[in-house]
Nucleic acid binder design. Sequence first.
DNA 1: ACCGGGGTGTTACCCCCGGTAACATCGTCG
DNA 2: CGACGATGTTACCGGGGGTAACACCCCGGT
Lengths: 208, 208
Amino acid sequence: MSREPRREQLLNAADRVIQREGPSASMNAIAAEAGITKPILYRHFGDRTGLIRALTERHTGGLLAAVRQALAEPLERRDRVEHVLDTYLAGIEARPQVYRLLTHPEPGDPSGAGNALAPALRQIAEEITRAVQSQVDLGADRDLLAEAWGRGITGMVLAAGDWWLETRPCTRTRMVQALADLLWGRLAAAADLPTAVLPTAPAEPNGD
Amino acid sequence: MSREPRREQLLNAADRVIQREGPSASMNAIAAEAGITKPILYRHFGDRTGLIRALTERHTGGLLAAVRQALAEPLERRDRVEHVLDTYLAGIEARPQVYRLLTHPEPGDPSGAGNALAPALRQIAEEITRAVQSQVDLGADRDLLAEAWGRGITGMVLAAGDWWLETRPCTRTRMVQALADLLWGRLAAAADLPTAVLPTAPAEPNGD
DNA sequence: ACCGGGGTGTTACCCCCGGTAACATCGTCG
DNA sequence: CGACGATGTTACCGGGGGTAACACCCCGGT
């Protein structure tokens, strides 16, 4: 049996463990799930990050492709944006554990310093950047704006989506509306509230 | 000498190590930097997360207070938003390593599952939520929108700020403009670009 | 029939990390 | 003085990532 099929089996096992125990599952646990021992895993994936990377690449495909396709949909812009948001939220809703893996990829790697966006998310950010660049007329600043917005929108959806997944405060479509509204400048358009009172929150140094 | 001052000294040492080695510095390294050994650290902080928490709380104060104050500034809304953005970016610009600590607090903790936003950031998100709730008239959906937007905006600024810090594609004020423009619905307002190419040949399933 | 290579797998080990137990030392207060 | 609360130490544990060394098994070549 050539290497590939075995690799797939090992990835399946790793997948199951991570579904069950979260992204911090140990190599021992993964090996045990696969019915084998550690060195084999290391033969196939080099090190832990290699395994995780293989795993994420395998799952990213679907979500990334879906988002990319949604970005290219021939709709009115607002509808397209909503479509993309819904696609993303549906994706993370379907497989929360995998989604964790995508967002928390390599716990505490000392090398690369701090990327707020995991590789999988960075691909999405680039996809958005490209879409904005090619679809929206932003004048001279287009490159800067598109890049900044690509990252920004990705981070926004990541954080908001995470919150939504955990607290489930509303339906998915409603959440899509809320985010699209934000992107659509509803924050700018809304009226001021009467300056109630309380310039500042009464100093409450700490909570939790 | 009561406990507090020693604690401060230990935190100073931890701070130096983390400035130098990043947030994944080991307890041994921190103890060594302080000229002592591990058990003392554990006496003072319980465990690693306790230390990190103490450290973040110490640094969060400044940024959080600054953001809170910026949110309460008596300006036109757009100016206020820009002020908040600038405050945040200035804060992370001043101390990148600390900022890493705030955003990557506990690498791979198995307990809390996956919070995309670190505690420090969550406080900022709540601050934004409160500000939106009390300052902007959003009709019946105000609670949901304010919460979703609080998280979303925080995530947006986190991701975009991270990218900006690493690549420094423009000045801070320009970055502030770019993000404020996004929040101000410029994405919605801009014209379509002539559908230059794109619909292209019918579906060409392709991977990068 | 023999051998070698590429796959399978194992046990046993290393180093470091987070965390703890047990013990020794100083200064202060009653 | 003694008790107490702080300081500090060495030595250890369990477990995680990662590696070395060895064993099997099958298949194809000479």
